[in-house]
Design a protein around this nucleic acid. Structure first.
Lengths: 132, 132
DNA sequence: CTGAATCCGTGGCGATACTG
DNA sequence: CAGTATCGCCACGGATTCAG
């Protein structure tokens, strides 16, 4: 039975975290926004719809896997819409949904705070690092 | 030379990401807030200073390692202050700095949006999942 | 062009044990 | 009480390959 203890603990931890997420919308949102590519995609789409390949080009550094995976997640959450145009070759456009658009002010609030206080954070880090 | 290509690419990617972070305060802040324990600690401290062990108890599920590591990061960023009282036994209090306090409205904005729109996200997920 | 599937290295995190 | 040090696991992301 000892061999299952680890798995059991993992499951318990996972279950506990899920339960926690269920009762804490803020963290759920944070988990979404925290994704490295989510904010980039959301920002890229804020100016209007974009094709899959456009996104891949604009957001330099993203792999196909992560781009697709992230877009799927955003689509699932209802933040982004996916429109397929059955031409040859196929064309797929991604756009912000209304819900996704509603999120922009929040992103902006984060951006504003960050831009206004990042200097303090940086100097705090510098002070902390040199003090050792 | 082929053996170094992978390592080189990783380094390049890392360097690119660092450069990107340097010019994008919003993502830097997001990287901080996204941490599983940061928001919990910030929220716990919003009501006033707490001792190390208090934090560990209030934030059920956090390991000593992560608690210490997260607190160090927050202290380094100037969001949290660490006060040692050299008694026996030693007493250490953690509190929000002014900068950390300034961040609360942003956290609140995130919380508000999440609480107001989480239902839509959940129903969107449900619709997406059942559609397959 | 837009993806799906697979392999694989590595870094983050939890658990455990030890210290002042 | 408040940490530090070490180890092992596995989940995440990048690269690559195949498909409609």
């Amino acid at each position: 039975m000892a061999t299952q203890t680890a798995a059991q603990r993992r499951d318990e931890a996972r279950a506990a975290y899920d339960a926690y997420l269920a009762c804490c919308p803020a963290r759920e949102l944070l988990d979404t926004l925290s994704d490295k590519w989510v904010s980039l995609i959301l920002n890229a789409l804020s100016d209007g719809p974009l094709r899959y390949s456009d996104l891949g080009r604009i957001i330099a550094g993203v792999s196909q896997k992560m781009l697709t995976q992230t877009l799927r997640g955003l689509e699932r959450d209802g933040l982004v819409s996916r429109t397929v145009t059955p031409s040859v070759p196929v064309r797929v456009d991604y756009a912000l949904t209304e819900l996704g658009h509603d999120l922009q002010p929040v992103m902006l609030a984060i951006k504003r705070w960050a831009e206004g206080n990042i200097d303090q954070v940086h100097s705090a880090r510098k002070a902390y690092d040199t003090r050792l």
